[in-house]
Protein backbone atom coordinates (compact mmCIF):
# COMPACT_ATOMS: atom_id res chain seq x y z
CA UNK A 1 0.00 0.00 0.00
CA UNK A 2 1.23 3.50 -0.85
CA UNK A 3 0.87 6.62 1.23
CA UNK A 4 0.95 10.13 0.11
CA UNK A 5 2.04 12.65 2.61
CA UNK A 6 0.96 16.18 2.19
CA UNK A 7 3.58 18.63 3.33
CA UNK A 8 2.78 22.26 3.50
CA UNK A 9 5.86 24.40 3.50
CA UNK A 10 5.22 27.65 5.30
CA UNK A 11 7.84 30.35 5.21
CA UNK A 12 7.61 33.18 7.60
CA UNK A 13 9.77 35.77 9.22
CA UNK A 14 10.93 35.27 12.73
CA UNK A 15 13.02 38.36 13.20
CA UNK A 16 13.41 39.58 9.65
CA UNK A 17 16.95 38.22 9.37
CA UNK A 18 16.18 34.57 9.82
CA UNK A 19 13.87 32.76 7.46
CA UNK A 20 12.75 29.38 8.65
CA UNK A 21 11.00 26.76 6.65
CA UNK A 22 8.68 24.50 8.56
CA UNK A 23 7.47 21.17 7.29
CA UNK A 24 3.99 20.29 8.34
CA UNK A 25 2.72 16.76 7.78
CA UNK A 26 -0.97 16.30 7.15
CA UNK A 27 -1.81 13.62 9.69
CA UNK A 28 -5.54 13.01 9.55
CA UNK A 29 -8.86 14.74 9.94
CA UNK A 30 -9.59 16.17 13.36
CA UNK A 31 -12.66 13.99 13.75
CA UNK A 32 -10.57 10.84 13.17
CA UNK A 33 -9.09 11.36 16.62
CA UNK A 34 -11.32 10.43 19.56
CA UNK A 35 -12.03 13.18 22.06
CA UNK A 36 -9.59 13.04 24.95
CA UNK A 37 -7.71 10.20 23.30
CA UNK A 38 -5.04 9.51 20.74
CA UNK A 39 -4.24 7.88 17.42
CA UNK A 40 -0.99 6.85 15.78
CA UNK A 41 0.22 8.55 12.62
CA UNK A 42 2.70 7.07 10.19
CA UNK A 43 5.32 9.49 8.93
CA UNK A 44 8.10 8.01 6.81
CA UNK A 45 9.97 5.77 9.25
CA UNK A 46 8.48 7.34 12.35
CA UNK A 47 5.34 6.65 14.33
CA UNK A 48 3.80 9.70 15.96
CA UNK A 49 1.06 9.73 18.58
CA UNK A 50 -1.47 12.57 18.24
CA UNK A 51 -3.77 13.45 21.11
CA UNK A 52 -6.99 15.41 20.98
CA UNK A 53 -7.20 16.87 24.48
CA UNK A 54 -10.77 18.04 23.92
CA UNK A 55 -11.34 18.92 27.54
CA UNK A 56 -8.67 21.62 27.28
CA UNK A 57 -9.24 22.36 23.61
CA UNK A 58 -5.59 21.48 22.96
CA UNK A 59 -3.76 19.08 20.67
CA UNK A 60 -0.45 17.34 21.38
CA UNK A 61 1.89 15.03 19.51
CA UNK A 62 4.68 12.80 20.80
CA UNK A 63 6.69 9.84 19.62
CA UNK A 64 4.57 6.69 19.71
CA UNK A 65 7.39 4.61 21.21
CA UNK A 66 7.35 4.10 24.96
CA UNK A 67 11.01 4.26 26.03
CA UNK A 68 10.45 1.86 28.93
CA UNK A 69 10.17 -1.38 26.96
CA UNK A 70 10.37 0.07 23.46
CA UNK A 71 6.70 -0.51 22.70
CA UNK A 72 4.80 1.38 19.97
CA UNK A 73 1.78 2.14 22.12
CA UNK A 74 1.69 5.64 23.60
CA UNK A 75 -1.15 6.63 21.25
CA UNK A 76 -3.28 3.99 22.98
CA UNK A 77 -2.60 5.43 26.43
CA UNK A 78 -4.95 7.41 28.64
CA UNK A 79 -4.35 11.14 28.86
CA UNK A 80 -4.88 13.41 31.82
CA UNK A 81 -3.05 15.98 33.87
CA UNK A 82 -1.12 16.21 37.08
CA UNK A 83 -0.09 18.74 39.69
CA UNK A 84 -1.26 22.23 40.51
CA UNK A 85 -0.19 23.44 37.08
CA UNK A 86 -2.31 20.71 35.46
CA UNK A 87 0.59 19.46 33.36
CA UNK A 88 -0.94 17.39 30.55
CA UNK A 89 0.33 13.82 30.41
CA UNK A 90 -0.13 10.42 28.81
CA UNK A 91 0.13 7.06 30.60
CA UNK A 92 1.62 4.11 28.70
CA UNK A 93 -0.88 1.26 28.65
CA UNK A 94 1.79 -1.31 29.51
CA UNK A 95 3.22 -0.28 32.87
CA UNK A 96 1.56 3.09 33.35
CA UNK A 97 4.70 5.20 33.16
CA UNK A 98 3.52 8.76 32.52
CA UNK A 99 5.03 11.41 30.26
CA UNK A 100 4.44 15.13 29.98
CA UNK A 101 2.76 16.00 26.69
CA UNK A 102 4.49 19.36 26.76
CA UNK A 103 8.10 18.62 27.63
CA UNK A 104 8.20 14.86 26.98
CA UNK A 105 9.71 14.32 30.41
CA UNK A 106 8.84 11.13 32.25
CA UNK A 107 6.72 12.10 35.26
CA UNK A 108 6.90 8.82 37.14
CA UNK A 109 10.40 9.20 38.47
CA UNK A 110 12.43 7.60 35.68
CA UNK A 111 14.94 9.38 33.53
CA UNK A 112 13.10 8.84 30.24
CA UNK A 113 12.44 11.58 27.75
CA UNK A 114 10.16 11.36 24.71
CA UNK A 115 10.01 13.59 21.66
CA UNK A 116 7.14 16.06 21.29
CA UNK A 117 5.99 17.79 18.11
CA UNK A 118 4.02 20.95 17.44
CA UNK A 119 0.47 20.33 16.13
CA UNK A 120 -1.97 22.63 14.43
CA UNK A 121 -5.50 22.34 13.15
CA UNK A 122 -6.37 23.96 9.88
CA UNK A 123 -9.79 23.62 8.29
CA UNK A 124 -10.64 20.45 10.21
CA UNK A 125 -7.30 18.85 9.36
CA UNK A 126 -4.52 17.92 11.78
CA UNK A 127 -0.94 18.87 10.90
CA UNK A 128 2.22 17.86 12.73
CA UNK A 129 5.47 19.73 12.40
CA UNK A 130 8.00 17.03 11.65
CA UNK A 131 11.11 19.07 11.02
Amino acid sequence: MMHTFEFIGVTHDIDSTLIVEEKWLFACHADDVPENGGVCVKSNQEQIAVFNFARRGEWFATQNLCPHKQQMVLSRGMIGSTGDQCEPKVACPFHKKTFSLVTGKCLSGDEYQIKTYPVKINDGKVYIQVE
Binding site: F53, R55, R56, G77, M78, I79, G80, S81, T82, C86, P88, K89, A91, K96, T98
Partner: peptide
Amino acid sequence: LELYGKGDGCEVCK
Protein backbone atom coordinates in the same frame (compact mmCIF):
# COMPACT_ATOMS: atom_id res chain seq x y z
CA LEU B 1 -15.29 15.50 36.61
CA GLU B 2 -17.03 18.88 36.23
CA LEU B 3 -19.21 18.33 39.27
CA TYR B 4 -16.95 16.51 41.70
CA GLY B 5 -13.41 16.64 40.42
CA LYS B 6 -10.69 18.99 39.39
CA GLY B 7 -7.98 19.08 36.71
CA ASP B 8 -8.26 16.85 33.67
CA GLY B 9 -8.35 13.39 35.22
CA CYS B 10 -5.77 10.64 34.88
CA GLU B 11 -5.16 6.94 34.32
CA VAL B 12 -6.35 6.15 37.86
CA CYS B 13 -9.72 7.92 38.09
CA LYS B 14 -10.75 7.36 34.48
